[in-house]
Design a protein around this nucleic acid. Sequence first.
DNA 1: TCGCAAAATGTATGCGCTTACACTCGCTGA
DNA 2: TCAGCGAGTGTAAGCGCATACATTTTGCGA
Lengths: 365, 365
Amino acid sequence: MSKAATVYDVADRAGVSIATVSRVLRSPDAVRPATRERVLDAVTALGYVPSGSARGLAERRTGVLGLYFPGFDAADEAPALDALSAETAPPFTVVHGDADDGDHATMLFLDEVLRGAELEAWKQGFVLMVGVGRDDPDRSIVRDMAGRVDGLMVLASSVPDDVLAGLARRIPVVVLSGPPRGDDYDHVLVGNAEAMAELTRHVLAQVGDGPLAFLAGPADSPDGAQRWEGFATAVADAGIPLDAVSVVRGDFTRASGRRAGEELLRAVVPSALIAANDQMALGAMDALRAAGVRVPEDTLVTGFDGIEAAVLSTPPLTTIRQPMIELGRAAVQVLARRLERPDSAPIVARLPVRILLRQSSQRPS
Amino acid sequence: MSKAATVYDVADRAGVSIATVSRVLRSPDAVRPATRERVLDAVTALGYVPSGSARGLAERRTGVLGLYFPGFDAADEAPALDALSAETAPPFTVVHGDADDGDHATMLFLDEVLRGAELEAWKQGFVLMVGVGRDDPDRSIVRDMAGRVDGLMVLASSVPDDVLAGLARRIPVVVLSGPPRGDDYDHVLVGNAEAMAELTRHVLAQVGDGPLAFLAGPADSPDGAQRWEGFATAVADAGIPLDAVSVVRGDFTRASGRRAGEELLRAVVPSALIAANDQMALGAMDALRAAGVRVPEDTLVTGFDGIEAAVLSTPPLTTIRQPMIELGRAAVQVLARRLERPDSAPIVARLPVRILLRQSSQRPS
DNA sequence: TCGCAAAATGTATGCGCTTACACTCGCTGA
DNA sequence: TCAGCGAGTGTAAGCGCATACATTTTGCGA
């Protein structure tokens, strides 16, 4: 790590000017093969790696795209870890039984978005920088990132409107999966409401006007709202009055789904139970099973998200899978396009959702 | 996006020199409150965001850490996606049944490492840049990253030795979870072998010298090798000759585990079956169940990885969970330490693994 | 052999910021 | 009253690279 070589060092060693060194790296055929060889030899000999900062400054573009996520509260309360003094720790610990991991779900989705973004960024020749939103008054990660990247992708509502507007004055911004708002931004949307409506129709087609139940998410969840909306649309379209539907609200956890299921059963056994996410649907199925209600024979159940546990449950849970990987990829594509055509009209890309029909929603014939 | 304001613009508007602007941003109390106000006003008015490149160049450090992963082959063959022309696509598609997602597992682990790294990077005031290794002859992402970051974390064997050595001359490098090799690098290790040995002892304590089976991974997998090693150590220590163990090799998939299980059963019903990963263990349990062999009454089974399906299986599968989040966090800590003390001796952090004892390995009393 | 266009290389400037150093004040203590 | 001082601010020199433009070299035809 001896002081990092620069173009000057390479130029010296190869007996050329720095311009030639730069050219060898940027447009190799602009320099005579013999010279090129000399330079490349010097490069490897010195272990030269061009400074991204200097490059970025001179080129006026960094080749980096930023992806900004809302924070996972859970992670912030992570226990302190001191790897540096862990030398004396035992190489393993034994755990009997298992604590429940809790709200893993949304994190997994974000991971997929990230993977998609990384993949596409690579294809387009960009590098990816990631940031997670945490409520830090003075040190703002988004601003920080905005100064380092050519374009920014933000998950809906992870950045306050005014801040976002400020950043958009400097670099292109694309908003992921949130409703178009301030709207000079580019957007990538997912048709959640439409898919939920379709799934609801699928269920209604089987249960006719039997008693219907909806297991809603927290009142302040935008996702939850969208899903309710799709459901409500389909129900209304079918000519069923919305107040004929039993609506119970949970908090997206399996436990809350279980409680909701028990609550529902005290009144009536619904012909179909549509949940705003998989965890709650699974919890409700627990409650149904405990009460001796069979799924799907007596009650149809559907979820939303497509978590792994949904395919492993008995019966397997019908659900809706958002194209998270594609979401990430699409965001990068949109951003790349925007960068090459800064003045074109705002782009809105809309991605198809996958409805996974499984046993829990198929009444046996 | 009107041409991005610079320090000069801000200085002009505030009626000060650029040095003062810089000072307001870097060390606010070095400037008189009144002046500071004027500058800050100008900053917000212009939507000024400092250029990371210029800053990095002047400061000779970027404040960015790089995390480099081995590539997921699966992702590379991802179908083309053209989000920009998707306007006409249907908002959803319906899928009956479900394709198996395949080797999700390792990706999930990497996601966790990433989360850990991001969390810790934030705590330490860094931003994170991620890169995925893909075999691209000319365009090398690692080099690219190396030029943009203050330090680099690489997953074991995702970077050829010679390349890594070159990069290490420029910036600090820490290697994650791989055996110490070239070794001037800092390392973060996980005691997989030790944990596997301990788990094996736990099993041996119950089955005595009953017939033992080991379900190995592919011959070329370093992970698989480590796990075998731990197992072999414990077996040898118990005075059991290694050739008394039935060893069957799989490829880490559930299907291969199932085949291996069937193969084993043709010879003998083992008292315990220790698998090199969860997928194969689950596959083997499928085979055992199909053959009417009860777990854990007749045969104890253990896995490795701690995937979600392992806790959902019947019976729940005993397994070993690597501390992936901590791995990421530790890597950042090590790197941060290295950056502030460039000349201290190579750091080796060793993280404890968690052994999750569940029903599949507990002979009922 | 010489002349000239094209190819190859060198020179010099600027990208936007940090920071060492120089400078200007308004005060303090002698 | 004035030297001396420190706080506050300005000036200017890079940081390492890309690149427009100037200069040299090469290749080729005459």
